[in-house]
Design a binder for these strands. Structure first.
Length: 455
RNA sequence: GGAUAGGUGGCAGAGCGGUUAUGCGUGGGACUGCAGAUCCCAUCUAUUAGGGUUCGAAUCCCUACCUAUCCUCCA
């Protein structure tokens, strides 16, 4: 399986040991505000990648952190005049609700930062003891000068960083590039006790403390959005190597690109922030997943109406064929070696290429449709199985409304409609079709019989 | 200014030295009682600009211009 590795700056073969647990860590969100489709892209992508690995027989432990203490959370709490954890709990819940809605359910464990304070303090202690971090009046900082490899992952030149005008050079930091690993509390702020006084952890150590606890000093795949490469992952590498001596805390670094709106990255100041919730008001979760996955993961995706419309059209085409196949294959039989799955596997593993996978699925859907009347049951079995296989990790088939409580009513209505059509009462028949449509039922006349499904 | 990706038809987006991908959109047709879905055909006759290498370039090299992301919290 090939994938682009940020550290190698090349597409490389992922060498994973099938006899051991594959350890995957993806940076989770800071629970400070509503979540947007950028979050959805990153988490849907890794959700599908992990599910794929599992399909291929790997046992994957997928760990994600949740940053539930942070300046932004504190500021938000101040604005709303509530305790910080009112904010963090509210948005943690929203996050989980949205992930569920998007069928992102492959994470084994969500690690809250505030539940790992002892581990964080332990790591900071080691860094201070070794002279790699120092204390000031407002916190503890990691000294970047002591870590010559800083910048390796992101291709940043340390000297260029030094001259960069936008680096925050305030306070008593020895070097403007140094990053905070412990923030001392200001009056009224939440705090935990530490050898450096009351305060809270900095962002970067949070993740290294968590991954070290569950995975040890190294693990297999570290994922996140590209915007976290610098300084966050750079800092993680600096911290963990300083502690463990292992070169890089993860063997492979996979970063998914950004979602843009009007060709610009979403941001609050530009007011081009598209929330997951707002998209789900108009589109199915599966349509969103398709739209977000349907790109090479290293390419920025511009979010526009056409993107969602295209997703809707394609999802509909796949789903329609899927329903028709299911109708024809009431008694399923497993056929073994499915040639389509073999092809799709090869396509996908060439760079985790969801876009190419979908493209080829669609090409097949077109062929299956055009030959629908003439292909045999075995081919239909293969087709159905192949579609389900793709869905099993991409999650693009509409789940529909699971309950079958209305099925009898639908059958009755269709029977009624059939007799109306026989009597040429097309106005009445169309009225029934229209009502079913409003109930979310799609029907298709096929000679004598009419098939239907929920959509 | 530095780092990293790019600049392909109305839009999205493959191809990475030699068969004018593909999807969406649009137009026409088939099927249907009709509609949708589906299928067929077509359309758009595209490769930022200028040099170069080559028998041959969207694909390699040079120059220019342009765009996005990162260099600050960020998925």
């Amino acid at each position: 399986m090939l994938a682009y590795d940020t550290l190698s700056r090349a597409e490389i073969k992922l060498d994973l040991d099938p006899s051991r647990v594959v350890r995957v860590f993806v940076c989770g969100p800071t629970v400070q505000d509503s979540f947007h489709i950028g979050h959805a892209r990153t988490y849907a992508f890794f959700d599908s990648v992990v599910k794929y690995l599992r399909i291929r027989g790997y046992s994957v432990f997928y760990l994600q952190n949740i940053t539930d203490i942070d300046d932004k959370i504190i500021n938000r709490a101040k604005e709303e005049n509530v305790s910080y954890d009112v904010i963090s709990k509210k948005y943690t819940q929203e996050y989980f609700d949205l992930m569920k809605a998007l069928k992102i359910d492959s994470v084994n464990f969500y690690a809250m930062a505030t539940r790992h304070i002892p581990e964080i303090i332990r790591q900071i202690g080691i860094l201070v003891d070794r002279g790699l971090a120092y204390e000031t009046s407002d916190g503890v900082y990691f000294s970047v000068m002591k870590f010559p490899d800083y910048g390796r992952l992101s291709g940043q030149d340390l000297d260029a960083l030094r001259t960069g005008a936008r680096v925050d050079s305030s306070e008593e930091k020895m070097d403007p590039r140094d990053f905070v690993i412990w923030k001392k509390m200001k009056p009224g702020e939440p705090y935990w006790d530490s050898p450096w006084g009351k305060g809270r952890p900095g962002w970067h150590v949070e993740d290294t403390a968590i991954t070290e606890k569950y995975f040890g000093p190294t693990y297999d795949i570290h994922g996140a959005g590209t915007d976290l490469i610098f300084p966050h992952h750079e800092a993680e590498i600096a911290i963990e190597r300083s502690i463990s001596g292992e070169p890089y805390l993860a063997r492979y670094w996979i970063h998914s690109a950004m979602i843009n709106v009007n060709q610009e990255k979403m941001s609050k100041s530009l007011k081009n922030y598209v929330t997951i919730r707002s998209v789900l008001e108009d589109y199915l979760p599966e349509e969103l997943r398709y739209a977000l996955l349907n790109a090479q993961f290293r390419s920025n995706v511009n979010f526009a109406p056409q993107l969602m419309n295209e997703a809707r059209a394609n999802i509909n085409a796949i789903n329609t064929l899927y329903e028709k196949l299911k109708f024809d294959l009431k008694n399923r039989a497993s056929r073994g070696n499915n040639p389509f799955i073999t092809i799709f596997t090869e396509i996908f593993e060439n760079g985790l290429d969801f876009r190419n996978l979908f493209k080829n699925l669609l090409l097949q859907v077109n062929r299956w449709n055009s030959e629908f009347g003439s292909i045999g049951l075995i081919q239909k079995e293969f087709a159905l199985e192949a579609i389900e296989w793709v869905d099993s990790f991409t999650g693009i088939l509409p789940s529909g409304k699971g309950d079958s409580s209305g099925d009898e009513l639908i059958a009755l209505l269709l029977k009624l409609r059939k007799s109306m059509r026989e009597k040429k009462d097309f106005a009445g028949a169309d009225e029934i079709r229209k009502s079913l449509r409003e109930m979310g039922i799609t029907i298709e006349d096929r000679g004598e019989e009419t098939i239907w499904w929920k959509s």
